[in-house]
Design a protein around this nucleic acid. Structure first.
Lengths: 221, 221
DNA sequence: TAGATTGTTAATCGATTAACAATC
DNA sequence: TAGATTGTTAATCGATTAACAATC
């Protein structure tokens, strides 16, 4: 059943994105139908989890046939907002910020970088791709004029919370935090973390422990 | 008590990294002691979670004083392997791979990039910083000679699983997957995901739903 | 000592999964 | 129809947290 109104947990949202990715692929290969246990096997899950996750959607499968791939993809896109265009501003024009600005991945998924900002006066005005780095002080006005959605924090850890506060008071809708600092915001502004180095550290730690337990049948896939 | 031998869940490992980050900061500011509820408040957790997490360590606090910052930092470093140097190879010399190679963050946390590989013959041999891109076919020998630890997948989604398989058979210890594809590996090789665009999608989805529920006292911080 | 914080147990909460009636 | 898969309930599992004895 459709629990409209209830925010699904992040774990579910994350899986739904993966389902969408897989189903688009299957659909482009010409499959008309997809089964819950096919999705599950591909993504190392159980079919019960897949069916339960899909029950968030206002879309139903057909016993014995499965889910219509094309239509399921559309329902997922709509639910996730993956069919919409989003505006993004990038704060921090260091190596990381530059890389993101030049990386095609954002555009390809509907996230359009509207501007890049930096604190450092000697960086303001420089070119990065087709952008010219703007001063932090311009954020507030820019957002007012353009009604921008999300802010990406590619600044040093020490500066992250301060910048986040500025973005919040400028009316940002959500923050993607790439710094190692913990960033908080009021309830109406979501914060999502994405730190490559932190994931590497996690990998190093996980692998050191799994190496210690020789060949215990693995719980962690 | 110290559960040595038990692999701690990834959620705990992730938090422990954050504790380490915070405690180093506190320590560098001159604090001799840290309290569980200080850590908790800073990171939006409860003090019970912090104390329970820290009980994985072979290190104990002192009732009424808290934890010695310097020593707790050392215990965390040792537990997480954050005091060790790690070798990493990078597969994929596109925009993302280039950015990581030039980004100082890896080095600064003890992850040394040993080599960069690419599938495309027209890219092999090119310079990226002080690296020269190597051919995929050289991975196996290189790993044998140098005993490399972790592989970072910065390749297109369609190529990810294939490259992962190659890394596994070459004896890699763990894989950091930056592609949108789901990647699997045998139990003894851990896979950790880190996809910036996926986190942006998550943010867009979360914020769209939190916007709908007007001012219900927020569960999600 | 009195008061506060730790380490840990037991209770709660939420997420995953097994199982099965409904159904094509 | 017989067989297979969905949607959903109930059971299980694991993670978080409240609560408190131990202790400095």
């Amino acid at each position: 059943m459709d629990d409209s109104g209830e925010t699904p947990p992040r774990s579910v949202i994350r899986r739904l994105s993966k389902y969408l990715f897989f189903i688009r692929q299957r659909s482009s290969e010409g499959s008309e139908w997809v089964l819950s246990h096919e999705i599950a096997e591909t993504l190392s899950l159980t079919s019960a989890t897949v069916r339960r996750d899909l029950s968030c959607l206002d879309f139903y499968g057909t016993p014995k046939r499965g889910y219509r791939a094309q239509q399921l993809a559309e329902a997922l896109q709509k639910f996730l907002g993956a069919d919409e265009e989003h505006s993004v501003i990038l704060v921090g024009a260091g190596n990381l910020g530059k890389a993101l600005a030049l990386h095609q991945g954002f555009e390809r998924h509907g996230f359009h970088i509207r501007a890049i900002y930096d604190h450092d006066p000697s960086v303001v005005g420089r070119r990065i791709g087709h952008f010219r780095v703007r001063a932090m002080s311009e954020i507030e006005n820019d957002l007012k004029e353009q009604g921008v959605g999300f802010g990406v924090l590619a600044v040093p850890a020490g500066a992250a919370q301060g910048v986040a506060d500025d973005l919040v008071s400028a009316g940002i809708r959500g923050i993607l935090n790439l710094s190692l600092a913990h960033v908080t915001a009021p309830d109406h502004v979501s914060v999502v973390d994405s730190q490559v180095v932190a994931r590497l550290q996690e990998l190093a730690c996980v692998s050191r422990y799994s190496a210690k337990e020789p060949t215990k049948p693995g719980k962690r896939k």
